[in-house]
Amino acid sequence: MTIALSTDGLAKSFGSLAVTRQVSINVPQGGRFALIGPNGAGKTTLINLMTGLLKPDGGRILLGGEDITAAPAAARVKRGLVRTFQINTLFLNLTPLEAVTLAVCERRGIAGHAWRTVGAHRDAVDEAFAILTSLRLGHDCLRLTRELAYGQQRLLEIALALATKPRVLLLDEPAAGVPRDESAELFSAIAALPSDVTVLFIEHDMNLVFRFASRIIVLVAGGVLTEGTPQEIGADPRVREVYLGNRGHLPATGSVGGGHAHG
């Protein structure tokens, strides 16, 4: 089994507060991993460290076996490590078509071309339009991003990530704020990604986690509490204790109708 993404003793502190404690994880190629944990567990920080928005105090990050700990954020994207954001991070005054075309152009290395018009790069436009259509954004891709419905903006987050042709995709609460019926649809789009694309996602909705994750990593207070299959995690009393306290309950493995954990 090839390891697509791994961290080795990754550590990060903000002042005296350790937000990432000796995190060592291995995500095999094609894995569908969920990263769960109560608010403040350091899930987004971990993604920020892996994508280079934050510099770790210690430890290493390996992408496909290569050490990328010191690589700049843009270089990691070029190597196929791509993320989405928990809070919409979009080009509000561009159309989705322009935004995704831009991402395609950056990947193809033609975003520095300044003479021919965007439209003259037909292949790039076609590719962008195909991505948008596959995420059901085809109809509205000529409106300004700021005019799109919130759920559509969440999809655009994913479209922008896909345009970079990721090998490893880190999704930070892709369905955050999306109504439940739409969030399942959104995850179906993620599940339909090519099987060689590795996915690590943060999600609070346990139903979605248990439905779409092949393995689950539980993060508590910056450190990995445990890791396992949904069955193992669902049966782990420590997870229930730490993650849900006494208030909620994890859904029985694979079944529907569990709790919506949100701390």
């Binding site: 991070t89 080009f91 561009l94 075309t101 950056e106 071309h113 003479w115 790069h121």
Partner: peptide, 14 residues
Amino acid sequence: NSPFGLALQGIREN
């Protein structure tokens, strides 16, 4: 109107 111009607007936007 080129991809470069689009990239500039991208930098401005986000």
